[in-house]
Design a protein around this nucleic acid. Structure first.
Length: 430
RNA sequence: GGCGCCGUGGCCGAGUGGUUAGGCAGAGGCCUGCAAAGCCUCGUACAGCGGUUCGAGUCCGCUCGGCGCCUCCA
């Protein structure tokens, strides 16, 4: 299995099975329903986990929930509710929506608010190493003192400008590890520097170490996190003497009208909405259709194409098929083991579909959480009765009556298809 | 301005030097009482211009166009 590593800009071989593969993936900030764009790193992480496990690896996936953040305070204030209440509510939405993807859960889903002691310990360590300094209740990371700063993003320190300008910083390029409590912030934690809360980046360094140890194999997240978030994570952990992540996977952004879907631009479609309108299978097929590193456009047309694909795959399981030979699975493995090339793997699935090798199909689809496509449909008894009546009419060559019964079946939401030696009932799409 | 990515047939989208990617849509046909599903056939695709090479979508250069990051963002 090899994967493209953003840090080294090459494809790198993963250690052989059983690994272990320790993975950390940056999750969402919870203050509203997540959008479809947010589903991409989650889906990718779960697929990689499921695939590696099916290949005999031992995988531990940590996916964090950022529940302490400026946005949480702001949104809570706007709604006039307690910020912890909002964070808990949005966390519940997050679980609800991602559960409906039907991919299972990461092994650990820690929250920033539950990792405060570890965060404080790490900040103290960085201060001890003179890589960080306290300034009126805030603590900042001393960027210029960390020689490798810029390695991940490829940026030169000299080209960098301020990150959140502040009078309290020695150098405007420094970033916050700890922020003192502000007047409008209704939740704060005690620390050696007074009441406050963690900066955004430090939580990931702390949580990754807490649940995976000082070094691990894979780190994922959206491409937009490469700088400053991941650059800062790397600086904090490397600065504190941890080896940290070896391979960095940055997924491409979802685009809406050729523009990145993001909360700040306001051009978002919630995951909830997509699940309700198109269903999980079409959404997963949509994610499958583009390589994880490429940006992908999200719109009704591509979703309709994904839905059509789901239907065509499902049809394969509605007629008799063959298991397929074990060695034929190699083509599927080859695609996924080469930088997790899901469009290629999808092409292999379609090849099997044409050949009616449903055994192989089922095995491949299972990896992507799409085994549901193989589940047979069961029509309600009244629809089945109508279908039997229609069959009898057909056998008696009373086609007008048969067609009328077909109309009734369709009105009930089912489609009847004549097959050799009988009929099939399938739900009408939409 | 700095760093990086991308431009493939109506649409989506793989493919890092040499035999058809694949899917969706469309056309024709087979099958069917009629359908549906399925199957068969059909598209001189690689932004443009140079260059390297026996040979380039695939390497190099330039041009045009698009996107991301450099500030919160998956």
């Amino acid at each position: 299995m090899r994967l493209y590593n953003s840090l080294t800009r090459t494809r790198e071989e993963l250690p052989p099975a059983p690994g272990p593969i320790r993975m950390y993936v940056c999750g969402s900030t919870v203050y509203q329903r997540i959008h479809v764009g947010n589903s991409r790193p989650f889906v990718l992480a779960m697929w990689v986990k499921r695939w590696l496990e099916s290949q005999g690896y031992v995988v531990r996936l940590v996916h964090n929930i950022t529940d302490v953040d400026d946005h949480v305070y702001e949104e809570a204030a706007k709604q006039g509710i307690d910020s912890r209440v909002l964070a808990d509510r949005a966390t519940a939405w997050f679980f609800e929506d991602t559960n409906d993807l039907g991919l299972g859960r990461p092994d650990v889903e820690p929250r920033a608010s539950e990792t405060i002691p570890e965060i404080i310990a790490l900040v103290r360590e960085l201060i001890g190493r003179e890589l960080a300094y306290e300034s009126q209740g805030d603590v900042y990371f001393r960027v210029a003192r960390f020689g490798e700063y810029g390695r991940l993003s490829g940026a030169q320190l000299e080209d960098m400008i301020a990150q959140e300008p502040s009078e309290l910083k020695e150098d405007q390029r420094d970033f916050a590890l700890w922020k003192s409590q502000k007047a409008h912030e209704d939740a704060a934690w005690d620390s050696p520097w007074g009441l406050g809360r963690p900066g955004w980046h430090i939580e990931c360094s702390a949580m990754a170490e807490k649940y995976l140890g000082p070094d691990f194999e894979l780190h994922g997240g959206g491409n937009d996190l490469r700088f400053p978030h991941h650059e800062n994570e790397l600086a904090q952990s490397l600065g504190a003497g941890r080896p940290f992540a070896r391979v960095w996977m940055h997924n491409g952004m979802l685009q809406l009208d050729a523009e990145k879907m993001s909360k700040s631009l306001g051009n978002v479609v919630t995951l909830r909405n997509v699940l309700d309108v198109w269903g999980r299978e079409a959404l997963l097929l949509f994610h499958l259709s583009g390589h994880w590193r490429q940006p992908v456009d999200f719109n009704d047309e591509v979703m309709a194409q994904a839905a059509a694909q789901a239907e065509s795959l499902r049809n394969a399981f509605r007629s008799p098929g063959a298991p397929g030979r074990e060695e034929e699975f190699r083509a599927f493995e080859k695609a996924l083991n080469d930088d997790f090339n899901t469009p290629q793997a999808l092409a292999v699935l379609h090849e099997w579909r044409r050949e009616q090798k449903v055994g192989l199909m089922r095995r491949g689809l299972e990896v992507f959480g799409l085994a549901s496509l193989a589940v047979p449909d069961t029509a309600p008894s009244d629809v089945q009765r109508l279908a039997h009546e229609r069959q009898a009419a057909r056998d008696a060559r009373q086609f007008a009556q048969a067609d009328e019964l077909r109309d009734q079946i369709e009105a009930a939401g089912w489609e009847v298809r004549d097959a050799t030696g009988g009929f099939e009932l399938v739900p009408r799409p939409g």
